[in-house]
Amino acid sequence: MISWRRWHAQLVDHIVLIAGALFMVLPVYALFAATTHAPGERIRPRLDPGGSGLENYLEFLTSSAGFSGDVTTVSMLLNSFFLGAGFAGLKVALSLLAAYALIYFRIRFSTAIFAVLLLTLMLPLESRFLPTYAVVADLGLVNSRAGLILPLAASGLGTLFFRQFLMTVPDALVESARLDGAGPLKFFKDILLPLSVPTAAALFLVLFVNGWNQYLWPVMVTSEEGTYTLVRGMQFFGTTSARGTMLAIVAILPPALLVILFQRQVVKGLFDGSH
């Protein structure tokens, strides 16, 4: 009787999980099926796949658009990748260094500084765009990858994660490093950095997805067609056009694959990285 109840509970759990997965995947599939029909047909979500999918996507990947002809799928993919990777890499590096300084150096008002960093989490990212754009324009970084990435590099959330992780590092490691004559840089490079790799990798993946999906900031800081990202391209082509819909499908794939492939590492790094 107990085993039957356990089997029944597992069956219900699986039904709920499968239903939830279908609920999330079905809209994406409906958009993909709409892009597989012959060109000229009205783009609308549908469940019946067409026979022109391969032809449509080959033409989509090899063609160019825009007044200058610089709007290509490959260029938008590269721009989105550089934005996501640079956004995540700089945030992880700066957050780890900031947390290291707050934990292991005697900084006056370190608690107040950390509180200010946490307060930045309460501000929507969009609320800082106008003054940030003015600074980027004054520095001549508009329509550049540096202008896309650098203004978004600081992260209070990343500092919080790394601070909580570094607080779990045993004091014995610090004392051992001092006895061995290791300075702050050597201690950071040889001990703390290897220990932080799981947390850093998990945080990098989360921030990469966040950077990949950035919309408003790329729209504000890029006007040249060669600097468009995938999300910016969707705004350029329109979400009801065939190319805009195919861009939406392509934009979903890299982050989704990364999360699916490394979901266990993400969970372990973010919530179990101290063990």
Rank of each mutant, 00 (worst) to 15 (best):
P194F: 10
I191G: 05
Y215G: 15
N210S: 12
D190V: 14
P218Y: 00
V221L: 13
L192M: 03
T199S: 10
F187V: 11
L192F: 09
T199P: 03
L192P: 05
F204E: 02
V219D: 11
P194H: 10
F208V: 09
K186D: 15
P194E: 11
P198S: 03
A200S: 12
W217V: 03
L205P: 09
W217T: 02
D190N: 15
Q214H: 09
L203E: 04
W217F: 06
F204P: 02
A202Y: 00
L205W: 09
W212K: 09
L192G: 05
S196T: 07
I191R: 13
L207K: 00
T199L: 04
D190M: 13
L207Q: 02
L216C: 07
L193I: 14
V219A: 12
A200I: 06
P198M: 09
K186C: 14
V219N: 11
K189I: 14
K189W: 15
A202D: 02
L216Y: 08
L195P: 01
D190C: 14
T199C: 05
P218V: 00
V221N: 11
N213K: 12
D190G: 13
V197E: 14
L192N: 04
P218D: 01
P198L: 03
L205R: 04
V206K: 05
V209E: 10
M220E: 04
N213F: 10
V206Q: 13
I191V: 14
V221H: 07
S196Y: 03
P198E: 01
K186S: 15
L203R: 01
V221D: 10
M220N: 09
F187H: 09
N213G: 11
F208N: 00
A200F: 07
L203T: 01
W212T: 04
V209L: 12
N210P: 08
P218L: 02
N210L: 15
L192W: 03
V206T: 13
L205T: 11
G211H: 04
V197P: 07
W217S: 00
F188G: 03
N213S: 14
P218R: 00
P218I: 01
